[in-house]
Simulated scan of single mutants.
Amino acid sequence: MAGEFKNTVDKMTDAMGGAAGHMSAAMTRTANEFVQAAATSDLYERTSAEIALRRSRNDDIRAAAQKMIVDHNTSTHQLKSALSMRETRDVEHPKEALDKRRETMIQHLEEAPDDSFDSTYLDQQVLAHEEASSLMKSYAHGGDNPQLRSFAEGTGPVVARHLERMKTLRANL
């Protein structure tokens, strides 16, 4: 019973953090904020997907997690490439570390009971991809750096596909 309560509290904490992240992402306009947010999002996606590959026994979830690793490695590479351009020379390179909110989400994922791991993972993925989608749309439409706006425009559709896939997996669980 105590484990169920903790799992419920963890999911509520993740949901509240996701809502706050979604609102923050929608207001991101500066290149430095965008770069850090995008890099942190990619790192969270790769880290959580590695956990899913290790813990999930659902083949569809494992395949989606593998896709997350490949696509978010690509996104990270494209972001680094954009940061090597003359147009972004004044933009700070991101710290390659999770923020406290995503560290907590990873901890919740690691601690999720086996029988609710898949639902915890998918709930987090929907939250994370809603936030990332908001970030990409917001920056693509109002960001202050043309090179990074282009990156956001190109990355947005991939994030949208991920979001739809995670929603479908969650609905079918």
Rank of each mutant, 00 (worst) to 15 (best):
A2H: 13
N7Y: 11
D10F: 08
A15Y: 05
A19V: 07
M23N: 11
A25E: 02
M27P: 01
A31N: 06
F34L: 06
A39V: 06
A39L: 07
E45T: 02
E45Y: 03
R46W: 09
A49F: 05
A49D: 02
L53D: 08
R57Y: 10
D60M: 02
I61P: 00
I69K: 07
V70T: 15
V70P: 05
D71P: 06
H77F: 15
Q78L: 14
S81E: 15
A82F: 04
S84C: 12
M85W: 12
R89W: 12
R89M: 14
D90E: 15
D90M: 14
E92L: 14
H93D: 11
H93I: 10
P94V: 03
A97E: 15
T104M: 12
Q107T: 13
Q107K: 12
E110Y: 04
E111I: 09
A112F: 01
T120D: 01
L122M: 08
D123M: 07
Q124I: 00
V126W: 00
V126D: 00
H129W: 03
H129S: 03
E131K: 10
K137L: 12
Y139W: 07
P146A: 05
P146Y: 06
A152G: 08
G156F: 08
V159K: 01
V159D: 02
A160Y: 08
R161W: 08
H162D: 03
K167C: 05
L173K: 06
L173C: 07
L173D: 04
